[in-house]
Design a protein around this nucleic acid. Structure first.
Lengths: 276, 276
DNA sequence: AAGTGGTCTAGACCACTTT
DNA sequence: AAGTGGTCTAGACCACTTC
């Protein structure tokens, strides 16, 4: 008994995720970080399971909104106990990669849901209930990535990128001016028409039309003043203070796939943040 | 066996947290929310345990930095399995109320730690490594709470509050102007001298000197322009765009105990935020 | 009735820290 | 060696959903 546990703890899990009937003895191989000069370290089993499930998400084996196999089935597939699979899925659920529903199963997280409407839009009204803004595309064009954009997107300077400018309005009042840079390779057929006719968060469209699901983002916020150009698009005076929100968004595997610069008018709305 | 589980699941845990030898039969009492018109709902055991441990933190039974009883001891004390205690502490750990250290034990979270230095200070340098700013108290006085302040702090309008104004500087450059309102009852003996001689985050002082540990905060961020008064304190021109960060901080039991308005100069620093 | 995730238990061993 | 948290297992029952 102790022998089995010991073996498994040090084992890599077969990554072919389908060898339910495989009788090959698992190899004793380390997974995880091995710093130079140190012996390889071994991740806990549940971390290995978590990584395998994440691979399934990344590869598109299970798409956003779809049901993934039950805990029991995954336990059999990976030859571990259900509790170990549970702990792996617990973490994925905490990271918003999957959503658990008692009695139904575990689903791949999607941006086509009420609960995720405001996960990446933190601008809320000072008074009244949150509502989703109207979207007006100002401009879409393809260009070569400037050095700074390339660095953020982890591509090469000069690579093709899609540039996009839009205005978001709450109840007809222009409030957000967004500029986006997207890797051209991924967002090939993106057009203003498609964007304008689409209702709801853009990440829903990205997910459905381009197979790119955003899992997290990193933002840097500064205060700036509206210049001539911006003041016209947001219908404010030159010099009006605005939030400058620079965001890099990541898809599975922490791959950066969007650079966004947003200018937020905060006279009736505010950026909401919870520190914990 | 099943009988025991069933009983316990519906039971309240004795809240006297010391009845290790108590042989009294647990009462079948619901804990948790019971909405009007509905039958009472029962929280899971681990949630009840979690609430009891939180009570211990709130009551000061275990103070910040101190060791709480081991999982085994708590399991015996509360008459549940170690796994149930573990799940309770897991959540408290995820909420940063306690910190686990393998081999040593579980400690009450404290603001006197390197790891929590930047938990509530999100302004980071655009270039270089994060460093902690110098603190200069401009003014401390007692006054009667204006209606708006009273509302945020959940006290009565006109109640005694401590008002505090300070400037934070990075490498000698004034960057943050803070104004704080604190309930007078809690922060009785707060003086400018004590604040000025104190190094490190103010929350460390609040914790040690006033027994008030902050567990979370809610921030609203806007962009504003520096007025005459602010421009002098921050040594910038009138009209310079600034981040306006309004924060309400909470201690155990989600009790609001600080209202803070910060003005951040973001020409060389930015507010960092992770969306996930 | 069957299947899913949610809770709870009991026991084993591992990794780390202190004595 | 003893104590702590960390991982893993096996099995039970509960709550919820679907058939």
């Amino acid at each position: 008994m102790s022998f089995v546990v010991k073996l498994r703890s040090m084992n890599s899990i077969s990554s072919t995720a389908n060898n339910q009937n495989s009788s090959a003895a698992p190899q004793v191989v380390g997974i995880g970080n091995s710093l130079p000069g140190t012996s390889p370290t071994f991740s806990p089993l549940y971390q290995q399971i978590k990584a395998l499930i994440t691979q399934g998400l990344q590869s598109g084996e299970w798409k956003p909104g779809e049901l993934i196999p039950s805990e029991n089935e995954l336990a059999i597939r990976f030859k571990v106990s259900q509790g170990t699979v549970r702990k792996a899925i617990d973490e994925l659920s905490a990271e918003n990669l999957v959503v658990r529903r008692q009695g139904k199963g575990t689903f791949v997280a999607t941006h086509h849901e009420a609960r995720s409407q405001f996960r990446f839009l933190r601008l809320l009204p000072d008074e009244g209930v949150p509502h989703y803004p109207e979207n007006k595309i100002v401009e879409v064009k393809r260009l070569r990535a400037p050095a700074e954009v390339a660095r953020s997107l982890n591509i090469k300077s000069g690579d093709s990128v899609v540039f996009l400018r839009r205005v978001l309005s709450f109840s007809g009042v222009p409030t957000i001016l967004d500029e986006l840079w997207l890797p051209g390779v991924i967002f090939k057929g993106l057009t203003a028409e498609r964007l304008n006719e689409y209702k709801g968060p853009m990440y829903g469209l990205f997910e459905t039309e381009f197979g790119t699901h955003m899992i997290r983002a990193s933002e840097e916020i500064r205060a700036v003043c509206a210049d001539q150009f911006v003041s016209q698009l947001l219908n404010v005076s030159v010099g009006t203070p605005l939030l400058n929100v620079e965001r890099v968004s990541f898809t599975y595997g922490d791959k950066p796939v969007e650079l966004r610069r947003g200018l937020y008018l905060t006279s009736a709305y505010h950026y909401q943040n919870e520190l914990s």
